[in-house]
């Protein structure tokens, strides 16, 4: 059997979840033995070159670009996993969800204490820019997500165990320490 293929991406996240993937330490070598990576910041492949088995998603969707990438992942991956609080619930970026988007933009580009320059008082509107969504969406509100790995970030062992379980088809061990959050 050929090696399972993995893709990963960071949407509206902080890359902390990806750092947690790297945090599996020397098991990363084992991982590269077990799987092949396709589109991912880990190997810097920008576009899908083939169908993948597993897609790991960090971060929720805060703009149209995130939505496109996520949909692209759904099309190319058999299994999608929401990794971390941001992907599952929106996380820190979703703190803006209670504030109208216009107010957010005005605070960021016009009225905020740290705004300098911008004499023309422009809210960035270049057609090249992705469009912000009115609120940050968790991934499962945009596409079907098969599994959820909680944590901010999920700890390296959890990610490792989950990957091994997905690859081997064995049931995943979820000891109490992994799912309690207080």
């Amino acid at each position: 059997m050929s090696k399972p293929i993995i893709a990963t991406t960071s949407l509206a996240g902080c890359f902390g979840c990806h750092m947690s993937v790297l945090d599996i330490d020397d098991r990363i070598l084992e991982l590269f033995e077990l799987v092949e990576f396709n589109k991912s910041p880990i190997n810097d492949i920008k576009k899908f070159t083939k169908k993948c088995d597993i897609g790991l998603i960090e971060g929720g969707c805060c703009n149209s670009e995130n939505v496109h990438v996520l949909k692209d992942f759904r099309e190319h991956c058999k299994i999608l996993v929401s990794v971390g609080e941001c992907a599952i619930m929106g996380g820190l970026p979703a703190m803006r969800n209670g504030i109208p988007i216009r107010e957010c933009l005005e605070e960021a580009y016009l009225n905020g204490l740290t705004v300098v320059g911008n004499e023309e008082r422009i809210i960035p509107n270049d057609p090249e820019l992705p469009m912000l969504l009115d609120r940050v969406f968790p991934c499962h509100e945009v596409v079907k997500i098969d599994y959820f790995l909680p944590g901010c970030p999920p700890r390296a062992d959890l990610i490792w165990d989950a990957l091994v379980a997905l690859i081997s088809g064995d049931e995943m061990k979820l000891p109490y320490e992994v799912v309690k959050f207080d």
Partner: peptide, 8 residues
Amino acid sequence: IKESAKAT
């Protein structure tokens, strides 16, 4: 993106 399109 309705609101954000309006705002920008």
